[in-house]
């Protein structure tokens, strides 16, 4: 979390970060963010960040703690609206639609841009109800049969169905950590989102459960556009096609993942991914 007690700006001004190096634009962008600034009261947490999320691709946002990557991710489905002191400026678009437009309902936006969190957070309800909840409140099913269909297909796509098909009435909280996270992913995709945001989705999981989630991310990208915040560089290298490196509120470098991990352009990127101090 960002330390709000500090009086210093979270944005660095002693290194040349005036321009992002690499390629921030995508040929086929699902979401386009331009000149985004985010403030917590007077403190600036994101400084003039512009980038595209390419359609049906996984974009990894990496950087040290407090660099603003999670803050930026949370702007993409207006999760920051829930923080009263948080102010977002800039042009953020899903397809061509301004997601901060006054007439736009954030609840509907969050159905289109779903989110999976660091800690699996299933509702204290049955596995079935966890997945059925979203489709119900958004009116995506007209009868029980349709709802059943959505629940089953969502669990299947999240790679969980075979493990839970005999106990759909059991509480979601009784599953293992990896299963809970896949349940949360099933819950997210049950409302047919277009974009899935993932904030460290595997950081609380063991390597096997992590591998399953990563495999799933790769499959999900066929249908969805994905942005993932991760502290694991190897994970970013494994799952993403594009990587964006954030440093003290600025986007330092963005480019093809294989280029970032073999031959980064910016010294700060190099230092971070090789574990050097600046």
């Amino acid at each position: 979390m960002i330390d709000l007690s500090s009086s210093e700006s979270l944005v660095s001004d002693d290194i040349d970060l005036s321009k992002t190096v690499g390629e921030i634009y995508a040929d086929d962008a699902k979401m386009s963010m331009r000149n985004v600034n985010v403030f917590y009261d007077e403190k600036q947490a994101i400084d003039n960040v512009s980038l595209d999320l390419a359609r049906n691709q996984v974009t990894a946002l990496i950087g040290p703690s407090g660099c603003g990557k999670s803050t930026f991710l949370r702007c993409l489905n207006r999760m920051n609206d829930t923080i009263p002191i948080c102010r977002v400026e800039g042009d953020l678009r899903l397809e061509d639609e301004d997601i901060y437009a006054k007439k736009l309902d954030p609840v509907l936006l969050r159905a289109r841009v779903g989110m999976v969190f660091q800690k699996p957070n299933p509702f204290p309800k049955s596995i079935y109800d966890n997945v059925a909840y979203g489709p119900k409140i958004h009116g995506l099913a007209t009868n029980k049969a349709e709802l059943d269909e959505i629940v089953v297909s969502s669990l299947q796509r999240a790679g969980l169905f075979n493990e839970v098909k005999d106990r759909l009435d059991a509480p979601g909280t009784g599953l293992s950590g990896g299963q809970q996270q896949r349940l949360c992913i099933a819950r997210t995709i049950a409302v047919s989102p277009e974009v899935i945001l993932m904030d460290e989705p595997a950081s609380a999981l063991d390597p096997i459960a992590t591998a399953v989630i990563e495999e799933l991310i790769d499959e999900l990208r066929e249908k969805y556009t994905i942005a993932i915040v991760t502290h694991s560089m190897q994970q970013a290298a494994r799952v993403s096609q594009t990587t964006a490196y954030f440093h003290m509120g600025k986007l330092v470098e963005m480019g093809k993942t294989e280029q970032i991990f073999t031959n980064p352009v910016h010294e700060l990127t190099e230092n971070y991914i090789t574990g050097r101090f600046g």
Binding site: M233, Q234, A237, F261, T262, N263, P264, T269, E270, I273, T274
Partner: peptide
Amino acid sequence: QPAASDLR
């Protein structure tokens, strides 16, 4: 698991 210049 070296990366970038370390990997090279």
